[in-house]
Amino acid sequence: MRVKKRSPFITGILDGLPICLGYLSVSFAFGIFAVNSGLQVWQAVLLSMTNVTSAGQLAAVPIIAAGGSLIELASSQLVINLRYALMSVSLSQRLDGTVTVPHRLAISFVNTDEVFAVASSRPGTVGRRYLYGLILTPFFGWSLGTLVGGIMGDLLPAVVTAALGIAIYGMFIAIVIPKARSERPTALCVLLAVVMSCLFHYLPALQAVPQGFVIILCAVTASAVLALVAPVEQPEEVDDHA
């Protein structure tokens, strides 16, 4: 039986487009930052194509530009990007049988905050076709934005590049707020995480803690507290063997 239905790959592409457009502006800002820090344009683009992550790359550039130690670089990346391990654990629970090990090896390469958030917001399980569609345009958007930013950054007025810095946070807000609005426990989790994050940022005694650790510590604590206080309902297994 053939029901007229959009293929999962196309659905993934469509869901990935807003991420791609958001990435264009953010990676554009990254390209400007990297070149202004002393990297070549091709180096900035290669960093984007091999990392596909904003915070980690932003932290790597000053270390690379200063000729810093590889240990410092590796530990900063580990700490800042450790959140992806949490996301990958979470995503591992949502994959269907089509996402075998070779596909997991490929898809995890582009498991960014936004890709993860969008994949998580899908009902039920996600398959490999959907995921490939989802990561395709964000990957190219991220690389292309870096290239254009690296080449054209100097041509733009400083006010515009400064304004673009807010784009990625706009995307984060767009993911968190609707969920927090409709689910009180999620709202409490967000509130707890934000309060802790501010304490780490503004209390002098806690300011020495590296930002990557702060992210892990606050997120893990807030999520654990809410998981204890307000455990989510077990999702019903969808049975298609009708």
């Binding site: 915070a55 979470s90 629970q93 984060f172 993911i175 968190v176 995480a193 807030a222 999520s223 998981a227």
Partner: peptide, 25 residues
């Protein structure tokens, strides 16, 4: 399962506040 459910929202919140206040200079 509940912990993993809350994690994405907690992570994105911590990354946004207060860092976003300093994003434009």
């Amino acid at each position: 399962l509940s912990f993993l459910y809350y994690i994405p929202y907690a992570v994105l919140s911590v990354m946004t506040v207060p860092a976003a206040l300093y994003a434009t200079g």
